[in-house]
Design a protein around this nucleic acid. Structure first.
Length: 837
RNA sequence: GCGGAUGUGGCGGAAUGGUAGACGCUACAGACUUAAAAUCUGUUGUCCUUUUGGGCGUGCGGGUUCGAGUCCCGCCAUCCGCACCA
């Protein structure tokens, strides 16, 4: 076969990409009357190069977007850049380039890479969060939230990353280390801006219930992150004083099992006493040093320091309990103090055994009446209350309600809901981010920058020769007059966490007028996003913040949208085999060759070790650059690979053999399209196959089951190849082009044009002839005692007695029955006959 | 520790409680070719059998059912998330 008959992506790809752009094929029309579909993939950070994971992500979204267009929707499928962030500053420090220049160059490069893959993006809506035209509107929104009381400033202990010289959110601290630098995090006190996400804790939790198109896993993760728990907040008084220590407990039912009160090292009471007690001071220091890694916590001994105070038990003032400072009590959850009930809490039990405190059983699951609790395993299961005066015999739930009611009636406590979720600290001591639009005045305090003075633009003339925030040391930028009193004042030099930038970009995509963040009516027409696709690593942070931000905007009346993402899909990673030499150094796949099960290094001939199949990463040298493979195979083969084989939520292993196979299929499809014969005559079987494919592939794409859609296209291609020329076959060839066009759009356009048609991107999805979906013959299974013995081809809808008769007539069946008595015959219409002996 | 997911040929994976292994990859054999590439045809879970055919097979052990990869109970392994949250 000559080269002329091959599909040549190196020519065709660019041609069709240009045509789509000229025809504005994928530009979304706000005014359209068609049903809308907003398909969104998480926008990338412009790190420099597109990663193969991006290609998989955007290919999925692209197939859905193109399919939605073909099925009559007005599709919004935008792309932009999450362009603020630390890598730009790191590059500035390492290479002496400006973060802005570095970022914009990266955007240009990555955009060119994306274009080569033929994604159906509406580039007219492209945005970059680092441009004043974006972040200026973000500043306006921030000030609206400030005016509504959803932003506040607080002196607070923060996680300080000593390498990156910045504050990290709790979520950015992993095992006590900075998520980027990996350096052990220190605690520092700084004045910080916070967003009141905790005001929305309940709403965000309840809202999860309506997100039935989200993965259960993600909803559960958010639920746990919000961490709502109900209990009793109550006071353990100092004897003959109204003052005391407030504790929070989810187990008020176990109050009669209390044997001590423990407070956090940072608790004000501990702090106060420590001033005059060097030993306590030393103990507190020790608590603070305690490691926060998984291993540290698991093995950490429960330690306490008896501070000599006693408190009254709320249910029996004559009963006094000792107070300890304990290393396992957290200051920033609940009240920073707990009462210990050792029999029914493992930590408390460990503590009590160590310091020889009483351990009283107050819950029994059998008839244990012995008040003295034995053993070292706390009992946390359900049961009946015992040794608890009037509560004896109650269930745990009854007792909880009873104690809370009593506390509220007597005024020493109240039912309370606690959350694990903390307010969102958004201040970052960084240059490359959205400037916080606040001016600090000695007289007026923190004053919002007036709207007319927005955007507060980042100065370009900054240096990165020393760590820390260049905005702090800029000679003029921070020097402004107070908008209120006119006196000399100072600009806030902190910038916003970049998660703020990504908390509303989907709204700006839907509507980007010049004078304001978005046009409410237009945004509401597009939102919520119908299908959001991205990595599961954003299951908590980005997705929770975006949900919060949308609710906050809704709360202040700016937009009537509660949940920004109606349907969420988290795709798997792209992985690749790793290789190492004998010394443990990573090798690229090109450096090794395989002979049987033996791997050797090509250059040296020394043995190589084939390691785990892992996520592609530069450090492990198992990356594949999208540009290289597009050069080699064209966009369509790469896109096809991204969709084939692995279910989209699972990891996809990159392989040479796999991409070669995709390349072959693209060529095979191309050859098929050259076989339109103009022949007459029908082929009912092929018609059926075609229409079953149309229906099935459509359903698969809607369900994002791209691997199944791909399998059905192979199936149809096989059937077409085997069929004799006919009008049906020609129709099937046209159909397979339409069906595969969302996946391999360049080839489809090229072939469609060759058939004398217009743009396949503008063509409708083929209509399904429902009558052709059902076969008129079916193959039924015949089982004897549940074991398959024969299959029969019968007319569809054959009556049950006739199915039975045909089954019994089979000699294979008769020999399996072997003269035994038939007890029963199960007949499932059009499916099977099971003969029970 | 808590929570969740996953487990099917050599590999990726299909399969409303009803013919397990669709489809793809790999491998092998054959056709075409001076040759190679490309392409085409066939085979490819496993064991017994010359064939016909039959036995065994969805991590392990039980159970429900005429019938279980699928439902229930109990384990095991791997992966992911959270983590001293009172």
């Amino acid at each position: 076969m000559s080269n002329v008959e091959r599909f040549n992506p190196h020519v065709a790809d660019a041609r069709w990409q240009k045509t789509w752009e000229e025809q504005a094929s994928f530009v979304a029309d706000d005014a359209s009357e068609k049903p809308r579909a907003y398909v969104l993939e998480m926008f990338p950070y412009p790190s420099g190069r597109i990663h193969i994971g991006h290609v998989r992500n955007y290919t999925m979204g692209d197939v859905l977007a193109r399919y939605k267009k073909m099925t009559g929707h007005e599709v919004l499928h935008p792309m932009g850049w999450d362009a603020f962030g630390m890598p730009a500053e790191n590059a500035a420090m390492e290479k002496g380039v400006h973060p802005g220049g570095w970022t914009r160059d990266n955007i240009a490069n990555m955009k060119a890479q994306l274009k080569r893959l033929g994604f159906a993006f509406d580039w007219t809506r492209e945005l970059a969060t680092c441009e004043p035209d974006y972040y200026g509107h973000e500043q306006a929104l921030f000030l609206k939230l400030y005016a509504a009381g959803l932003v506040y400033r607080k002196e607070s202990a923060v996680n300080w990353d000593p390498v990156d010289m910045t504050v990290l959110a709790n979520e950015q601290v992993i095992d006590g280390k900075g998520w980027r630098s990996g350096a052990p995090v220190e605690r520092r006190k700084l004045s910080q801006w916070f967003l009141k996400i905790t005001d929305f804790a309940d709403e965000l939790l309840e809202g999860l219930g309506s997100l039935d198109q989200w993965p259960d896993k993600v909803r559960l993760m958010q639920e746990n992150w919000i961490g709502r728990s109900q209990g009793l907040k109550c006071r353990f008084k100092y004897p003959s004083s109204s003052d005391g220590i407030d504790v929070f407990t989810t187990r008020p039912d176990t109050m009669f099992g209390a044997s001590f009160v423990a407070i956090a090292a940072d608790h004000p009471v501990a702090q106060k006493l420590a001033a005059n007690a060097p030993e306590l001071q030393a103990f507190i220091e020790e608590c603070r040093k305690g490691g926060t890694t998984a291993a540290d916590i698991e093995t950490a001994e429960k330690k306490g320091f008896n501070i000599g105070l006693t408190v009254e038990h709320p249910l029996d003032p004559s009963w006094h309990l000792p107070v300890y400072v304990a290393n396992f009590v957290l200051m920033d959850y609940g009240t920073g103090a707990v009462f210990g009930c050792p029999a029914h809490d493992q930590r408390d039990l460990d503590f009590a055994r160590k310091y020889d405190l009483p351990v009283t059983r107050v819950v029994a699951d059998g008839d244990e009446a012995d008040s003295h609790f034995k053993g070292d395993i706390a009992f946390t299961g359900p049961g009946k209350i015992v040794n608890s005066h009037w509560m004896d015999g109650m269930t745990i739930d009854q007792a909880k309600a009873d104690v809370i009611a009593k506390a509220e009636a007597e005024g020493w406590g109240e039912g309370q809901t606690q959350y694990r979720l903390r307010d969102w600290g958004v201040s970052r001591q960084r240059y490359w981010g959205t400037p916080i639009p606040i001016i600090h005045c000695e007289t007026c305090g923190a004053v919002p920058v007036p709207e007319a003075q927005l955007p507060v633009v980042l100065p370009e003339d900054v240096t990165f020769d020393i760590p820390g925030n260049p905005l702090d040391r800029h000679p003029t930028w921070s020097k402004v007059d107070c908008p209120k009193c006119g006196k000399a004042a100072r600009r806030e030099t902190d910038t916003l966490d970049t998660f703020v930038d990504s908390s509303w970009y989907f709204i700006r995509f839907a509507s980007q007028p010049h004078g304001k963040p978005f046009d409410r009516e237009i945004a509401e027409k597009w939102l919520p996003v119908d299908q959001y696709i991205g990595g599961v690593e954003h299951a908590i942070l980005h997705l929770l913040y975006a949900r919060f931000w949308t609710r906050a905007l809704s709360h202040i009346g700016m937009i009537d949208v509660k949940e920004p993402f109606a349907s969420l899909f988290t795709q798997g990673m792209v992985t690749h085999q790793t290789y190492q030499d004998a010394g443990g150094n990573w090798l690229t796949p090109e450096q090794v060759k395989r002979e049987g099960d033996i791997w050797t290094i090509i250059d040296s001939g020394e043995p190589a070790i084939a390691g785990r199949i892992e996520k592609m990463s530069k450090s492990k040298k198992n990356v594949v650059d999208p540009d290289d493979i597009v050069d080699q195979y064209g966009a369509d083969a790469v896109r096809w690979f991204m969709l084939s084989d692995s279910p989209p939520e699972r990891d996809l292993e990159w392989s040479e053999a796999g991409i070669e196979g995709c390349w072959r299929f693209v060529q095979r499809l191309w050859r098929l399209t050259g076989q339109v014969s103009g022949a007459d005559g029908g082929d009912k079987a092929l018609d059926r196959k075609t229409h079953q494919a149309i229906a099935g592939i459509g359903a698969d794409i809607e369900a994002l089951s791209f691997n199944k859609a791909v399998a059905k296209i192979y199936d149809l291609a096989n059937a077409i190849e085997k069929a004799a020329p006919s009008a049906s076959r020609d129709a099937a060839i046209r159909a397979i082009l339409l069906l595969s066009s969302p996946m391999v759009p360049h080839l489809a356009e090229e072939a469609w044009a060759k058939l004398g048609e217009g743009l396949i991107a503008d063509s409708p999805w083929p209509a399904v002839d429902q009558a052709l979906l059902v076969d008129d013959e079916v193959t039924i299974a015949v089982q004897v005692k549940g074991k398959l013995r024969d299959t029969l081809t019968v007319a569809k809808g054959l009556p049950q007695d006739e199915m039975e008769a045909l089954a019994l007539a089979s000699h294979k069946v008769q020999s399996a029955i072997d003269g035994a008595v038939i007890r029963k015959v199960i007949v499932v219409p059009d499916r099977l006959v099971n003969i029970v002996l």
